[in-house]
Amino acid sequence: MEKIIECEHVSKVFGDLVVLKDISFSVEKGETVCLIGPSGSGKSTMLRCLNKLEEIQKGEIKVNGLDVKSVKNVNTYRSNIGMVFQHFNLFPNYTVIENMTLAPRTLKKLSKKEAIKKAEELLERVGLSDKRDVYPATLSGGQKQRVAIARALEMNPSILLFDEPTSALDPEMVGEVLDVMKSLAKEGMTMVVVTHEMGFARDVANRILFMDDGYIVEEAPPLEMFQNPKTDRCKKFLSNFI
């Protein structure tokens, strides 16, 4: 299989704090990989390094075969990697459809007509066609996150990154967001998901990476990880969810 993300010996520091220590992993095309682990273990930072929201100090990250350090135009690079945030980060000054068409139109990736047509298709897909012209403030958390996913898809990314996409949602709304993500996984979208949703990780992920204190402590397919964790640290962490 084609490797779409390759990380080798990545390390990252914030001042004196070493957040990532010698991280190596890869993601194949069409795979869904979940990053789990306690808060402060470096999951989100790892994710943010992948689209250069953070710079790494040591090691190498290759995305689609390209070393991120050699990226000349960071904007073009990022437009190919979708990112979905914990707090949705929809633009409150634009309507739903404007949120979705802003980037492709500003970057002249699509014409106005094409952008709107595509956005309408995506809205239908996430079940929010009727919310086309409302402002984000009127949406529920789950609806906001579905719009955020649609907004990321509008750019036709080769990878989608999710940074705790359901952590800010109340339990009733988690399902609708996970359903959208599941259907994306099924269609072969390459996804890296930082999550605390163990059910989702178990059902959807091809592989799970367990991170703690800046290291990948354990890496395994979901069944193996949940039924038979090798390290004590992972065992202890997972015991909280059973």
Binding site: F85, H87, N93, L102, R151
Partner: peptide
Amino acid sequence: DIGQTEAARSLGLSYFQTMRKVIFPQ
């Protein structure tokens, strides 16, 4: 919120496009 900048930049908008279209209007 810094998340607005991050969202805009992760969609591929440049610093100035982000300022002009997202941050400044708000």
